[in-house]
Structure formats: structure tokens, C-alpha cells
Amino acid sequence: MFNLFRKRAPDRPPTTGGRLVYAVGDVHGRLDLLGALLRDIAEDALAARAEQAPLLVMLGDYVDRGPESRGVVDLLLEMKAFARLETRTLKGNHEEALLRFLEDPKFGAVWMDNGGGPTLASYGVQPPAGRSDSDAWVRARDALAAALPEAHRAFYRDLELMVTEGDYAFVHAGVRPGVALEEQAERDLLWIRQEFLEASGPFGKVIVHGHTPTEEAQLTRHRLGVDTGAYATGVLTAVRLHREDQRLMQAFARRPGAA
């Protein structure tokens, strides 16, 4: 369940400034993988005996596609209460979709096309059978609103857009090249892809992000991409940053019949 890969930039490597930091890629309802990875992170953080509480940054997209969105949020709320590890949770485009559905039930059909059905089911709500049944979507929205615990409602409402630590900036999707970090638009932080991925950088800080799944994590000079498509691949990835060190930590789904 634990895999390490080490890489250093070729010159003037970025640093966390001394703090131990973990950043976890897109979870998408895979509570099994998140639980395993967070156990490894907690054990590693406790073993480090750092003077300052280590930082855990969740990069967004906790919900949709996988089966246990509600359980993922429950676990993250537990982590936020774990005093020995500061937990910061970023907003992903899938959390934005959930919040939009709560405001506008007409958005429901689009959300379902992008994996919202399992999220509704995890809160005990049956998705409407027809895309165009507006009354059914209103009922589904109302049922979800009623099923959301207040702690979950606050969790989704209070998600952050960016966290910085040392030479690193943590966002969900990426940043708009040529725009200062403090001036980035929310839509780009949640949705950008090719304009960011194809840019050579630098971006002001090393950008740590998820959003775009790849078979392997991408640790490059100006960006670290750690979305390994957990909901489909069974591999959830985090990057462990400490001073100038960069390592990967991963949780893997058990194969059927494995001991």
C-alpha cells in the first residue's frame, strides 16, 4: 500500500521551508484507497516528530464517479479534527458541480453525465430516470439538501481555492500562465487543462495539482501532477514534500481474491 519515488530538480530545487507537507490527488469516492493512504500518511507524519504540525493538502474532487463520496467527506472531517496534522481541503470542479446542483436543479442532468449519480446514491438519493423531468430533478435536489449533514454542507461551502507553503502552491487543476498567483480566476483554478499543462513555466511557485489523470504522477520542474485516476485505476497518489525532497506515496486497490 506504500510506494516511494524520489526526485530532485536539477538546479536550485524548491523547498517547503522546512515543513513536512503531503498533497493528495483526486479521490472521487474511493474511500478504500483514501483510508489506506491516510493511514500511511498519519504514520509517516507521527514518525517524523516534526516541531511544526505537518500539513496535509487535499487537492479536490472528493465526490462523484466512485461509490463512497459521503464516506470520503466523513473521513476528511475526521482528519480536520486530528490535531497532529493540519488538514486543508481544496475545491475541485466536481464539488463545484454538486454546489451548483443544490442551487439549480436543472443542472442535474449535466452533473449525472459527469459522475454525479454515485454521489447522490451515497447520500441515499435516487437519481431521476429521465433527463428532462424538471420536477424530478427538483425533488432530487431537495432530497440531497435534506440528506446533507450540516457538517458536510459547511465542508463543501468552505473549500479553499489555493494553499501555499514555501516554494509550492497547491491548486486543483492548475493556473493560467502569465497571470500572478494572487490574480488567478476561480474557473482556471478548478478547470484549466491544456493551456497550463502545455506551458513551460515558471508559474511563480511550483504548482501541485490534480484534475488531469495520468497513468503515472508527473514530477517536473515547475509542476507536480498527482491525479492517477483513482476511481478507474485503483491507484491513489500523494506527494510528500519536505525541505528539498519530493517523494510519492500511493495506495493500491486489492485485486479480487488477494490475501
Rank of each mutant, 00 (worst) to 15 (best):
T15I: 03
Q184D: 08
P127N: 09
W111F: 06
E244L: 09
E165P: 01
D40C: 14
T119Y: 04
D142M: 00
H242T: 04
L98F: 05
E216P: 01
R193I: 02
Q52F: 02
E95R: 04
Y22K: 05
V239H: 08
G17S: 05
P67T: 05
Q184A: 06
R19K: 06
P128R: 10
R240H: 09
F5G: 14
P149I: 03
G166W: 02
R100D: 15
K205W: 03
A145N: 01
A109D: 13
G108I: 00
T237H: 09
P67I: 03
S122H: 11
I207A: 07
L76S: 03
A36E: 13
D64K: 03
V163K: 08
P127F: 10
L120W: 07
E68W: 01
F203E: 04
R157P: 00
E186N: 04
W111D: 01
L90N: 08
T220S: 14
A53I: 09
F196S: 02
V125L: 04
A48W: 02
A23G: 02
H28Y: 07
R221L: 15
S69Q: 00
H242L: 15
A53E: 13
V206I: 07
Q246F: 13
G92K: 03
A42N: 12
T119N: 08
L144V: 02
I207E: 07
E96C: 12
S134L: 13
M112A: 11
R8G: 10
R247Y: 14
D40N: 13
A129L: 15
D64S: 03
L77R: 02
K205P: 00
D44R: 12
R8Q: 14
V163T: 15
A83M: 06
F107E: 12
G35R: 12
L20M: 08
A251R: 02
L159D: 04
A45P: 06
D245Y: 11
A45Y: 06
G115D: 02
E43H: 09
G174K: 08
R243M: 11
L120P: 04
F107W: 12
R255C: 12
Q218M: 14
H94E: 01
A232E: 15
K7I: 15
L85Y: 00
F203H: 09
R255L: 14
T233L: 07
V208T: 13
R153E: 14
D167E: 04
L33C: 01
R6K: 15
V63Q: 05
G60S: 07
L99F: 02
G166E: 01
A48R: 11
A238S: 14
